[in-house]
Design a protein around this nucleic acid. Structure first.
Length: 756
DNA sequence: GAGGAATTGATTTTT
DNA sequence: TCAATTCCTC
């Protein structure tokens, strides 16, 4: 896309609330194409910008913010912008700064729905029976809490999994339903029976006891306040004169209600999104929001961005043809801005015999690309499931290709960070039971299950918090003196830190806590490379704590911000990530391995009716459109899934690529250098002309009952995948290690082989 | 309560 | 297969 660097020097004086030097015709307009300019200049009334992949969505939003500030009388703090992640919000703010100058600093309402809602909710806590310092429950804590409630309701955890209950509650909150509708949810009906409603009531009661909300509440409470009190709503309606929404296809129903209430007065709502890139349906995103925009916001203008600046026409056309197989979408006609030339390669489809070979071939290709001057960082491997990553890691380590995994374990997900935060939270809020239970046994101090059980019993009996119960036990004779002393020591430390909290700098306080708790010592004693990293992470945590003026403010920010900047190594390295994590990114070369039925589209999505398949197809579309110049799709003829070897059928999506823009058999110049990939033979062998044929008994693990349990060692057997072989030894209940005549040693399910 | 053995169960993931 | 969890023993 155009790379003009310019700056419109707006100055916003917060004292006088005046914006100066904004009467010049700003330059940001001139670098937009006609479609984009229309989207930027239509500042009044509801607007939907339907932007295909690579059409400059963010540029439109950024320019629009600049335009609104320049041409209307709106102040930056009267503009509300929602983004999908915190990271996107930061990046958007940076880009606005590049375009409008220092005025971006006054753009204070830009962030995720959750972050914005938390701010709004803090002003009206009494309205919904909360204290202003309410805590925000993380997903993990939510499951933990539900687990405990299920336990105390004497339900069998195996049959009533907390995770399932959590997903039901979340789904239902995302849909903006209230407690009366929980009984309508099909899933809870047969899984939880009448108990779900009780469990939910207990859950919500526990939340308010703890002065906490979960992520769903954050939004729905704001919606509830706005619905119930017209005065409060009116206040926000006039406060936010312009509303901009990024990634509109990923909003859920509550977020729609939220926007609708807020925008109903000014009608100045502009949403940017692409229905074809909606890949988060499984967590509540509602594509219908974008499909029905014109009905939901009467008088809406819809602008389609069709000019794609990213991909070559072969890639774009393949992707467009693929996505045209979806029924539930708004048709678009994207065209590539790139002048077709010799390096407009077709999308190539290649086959390997196993995931190992797949990784080996792709590794070789990457090395060749590198020799031809392509930096590693311009190469991405986009997988459907994270389990596919390991094969590539192994291979890359052995041949020395530097790589990085994006969207891997997040900083705040690391055990040591969570432990540290749990210590901090106990210090600040002594009634935080979850955190207290987390720190009890880390580092080891002779406190465990038995002691915890006693605390629980006492807490329940006396209505204490866990820490109060611990204190009572520490001065009673309910436990051994050794346990008592250890417990007392912990409690005294927590009390000491609590008293330090108000007049000690945050960074100092946090390092005192980590030190005195023995946590640092524990890691130092380990002295493994692993523990070195952990110590570094803790140092990093202490460093970032220094930016806050109180420990509780620091904790507040960590509840909403998950640092997903993955290891910012400056080394030129290949990017490995899931397709989900690749959303919004682009690379010169993209490898898409594992296009096989059952893996991509994923079996779980296939079981899940038509909408599941369509979302998988959108995912394929997103994957393909990440590529600028080269896209290479791979599939294998057999793959080890969950430890078992399975014959695989090429993905039905391969048959949905446009023949004119994808080459199934034609071999690109680089590929000819790989001798062991015989595309032709494999294509025939795998019956690629009829993609989508699934051998259901092979793909599904539960498909057929396990027979052949009486197989003896040394028996000759036959497998559809590997041919003839001899059993070597039993491996677990229903598996056998077999030496195949041609395929070598494999461990497979007994049901996949038959004696001959 | 700690540590080793056995069992289980495995998309995608942000706030 | 492989990691996480639970079970079992000392």
């Amino acid at each position: 896309m155009q790379s003009s660097t310019f700056s419109v020097p707006f100055v916003f004086d917060a004292n006088t609330n005046q914006l100066s030097s904004c009467n010049q015709v700003p330059d940001y307009i001139s670098c937009l194409n006609e479609e984009q300019r229309l989207a930027v200049e239509t500042t009044e009334g509801p607007l939907l910008v339907l932007a295909g992949a690579g059409t400059g969505k963010t540029r439109v939003l950024v320019s629009r913010i600049a335009h609104i500030i320049a041409t209307t009388k709106a102040k930056p703090h009267e503009i509300l912008v929602t983004t999908f992640t915190n990271k996107a919000a930061r990046e958007m703010k940076e880009r606005v700064k590049d375009t409008t100058g220092p005025v971006a600093n006054s753009l204070s309402w830009i962030g995720t729905f959750h972050a914005l809602s938390a701010r709004i909710l803090r002003n009206h806590t009494s309205y919904v029976g909360l204290q202003p310092d309410f805590a925000i429950l993380s997903a993990e804590e939510q499951v933990h809490l539900l687990k405990k409630l299920i336990e105390s309701a004497n339900l069998d955890e195996k049959r009533w999994p907390a995770k399932l209950l959590a997903s039901i509650i979340n789904e239902w909150k995302n849909k903006g339903l209230d407690e009366h509708s929980i009984s309508n949810l099909e899933a809870q009906h047969y899984l939880f029976g009448g108990k779900a409603k009780q469990l939910y009531a207990a859950y919500q009661a526990r939340l308010s006891e703890h002065n906490a909300v979960d992520y769903g509440d954050l939004l729905s409470l704001v919606v509830r306040i706005w619905k119930q009190d017209p005065n409060i709503l009116a206040e926000y309606q006039s406060k936010f004169r312009y509303i901009l929404v990024d990634e509109y296809q990923d909003t859920n129903i509550v977020q729609y209600l939220w926007l609708k209430l807020l925008a109903i007065k000014s009608k100045n709502i502009a949403c940017v999104g692409d229905d074809d890139q909606s890949i988060y349906g499984w967590r509540g995103a509602e594509v219908t929001n974008i499909l029905r925009f014109e009905q939901n916001f009467p008088g809406a203008k819809v602008i389609l961005l069709k000019r794609n600046y990213r991909s070559t026409s072969n890639i774009l056309n393949s992707a467009s043809y693929l996505i045209s197989h979806n029924k539930n979408r708004l048709p678009k006609d994207l065209f590539s801005d790139r002048v077709s030339s010799e390096d407009d390669e077709k999308v190539s489809v290649c086959c390997a015999t196993s995931s190992k070979e797949e990784a080996r071939s792709i590794g070789t290709l990457i090395e060749l690309l590198r020799q031809k001057g392509q930096p590693y960082s311009q190469v991405a491997i986009l997988v459907r499931t994270s389990s596919q990553m390991k094969e590539f890691e192994d291979r890359f380590i052995s041949i020395g290709i530097p790589y990085r995994i994006l969207g891997g374990p997040k900083f705040y997900d690391r055990a040591e960070i969570k432990d540290a935060l749990a210590y901090f939270r106990c210090t600040v809020r002594p009634y935080d039971n979850l955190s207290f239970e987390r720190i009890l046994g880390t580092p080891k101090r002779g406190l465990g299950k038995a002691t915890l059980q006693k605390m629980h019993a006492l807490a329940k009996q006396e209505g204490y918090s866990t820490m109060e119960a611990a204190e009572a036990i520490a001065i009673s004779s309910m436990v051994y003196p050794k346990t008592r002393a250890s417990l007392l020591e912990l409690i005294n430390k927590l009390k000491k830190w609590h008293s330090l909290a108000c007049n000690t700098p945050v960074a100092e306080l946090s390092s005192i806590i980590l030190d005195e708790s023995g946590y640092i010592d524990m890691l130092k004693r380990e002295s493994t490379p692993e523990s070195e990293i952990r110590l570094d992470n803790l140092k990093e945590l202490v460093r970032s704590a220094a930016d806050y003026d109180s420990l509780s403010n620091f904790l507040e920010s960590t509840a909403l911000i998950t640092g997903n900047e993955s290891n910012p190594s400056n080394e030129d390295s290949v990017n490995i990530m899931t397709i989900h994590a690749a959303k919004g990114l682009e690379f010169d070369t993209v490898f898409l391995p594992g296009w096989e039925e059952g893996l991509f589209p994923h079996q779980r999505a296939l079981n899940d009716k038509q909408s599941g398949l369509e979302e998988e197809r959108r995912l394929a579309y997103v994957g393909l459109t990440r590529a600028r110049k080269t896209a290479m799709i791979w599939f294998t003829s057999s793959r080890r899934v969950q430890g078992y070897w399975q014959a695989s059928t090429p993905s039905r999506f391969l048959g949905e690529l446009s023949q004119a823009h994808a080459s199934f058999a034609a071999i690109s110049p680089i590929q000819t250098e790989i001798s062991h990939t015989n595309v032709y033979t494999q294509m025939h062998k795998n019956n690629l002309l009829k993609p989508g044929r699934v051998d259901s008994h092979i793909m599904s693990r539960e498909g057929s009952p396990d027979t052949n349990n009486d197989l003896k060692v040394g028996t000759r057997v036959f497998s559809k995948t590997f041919g003839y072989g001899t059993t070597i030894k039993a491996a677990g209940h229903n598996n056998m290690k077999i030496l195949f005549d041609t395929a070598g040693y494999k461990t497979i399910r007994n049901s996949y082989i038959e004696p001959v």
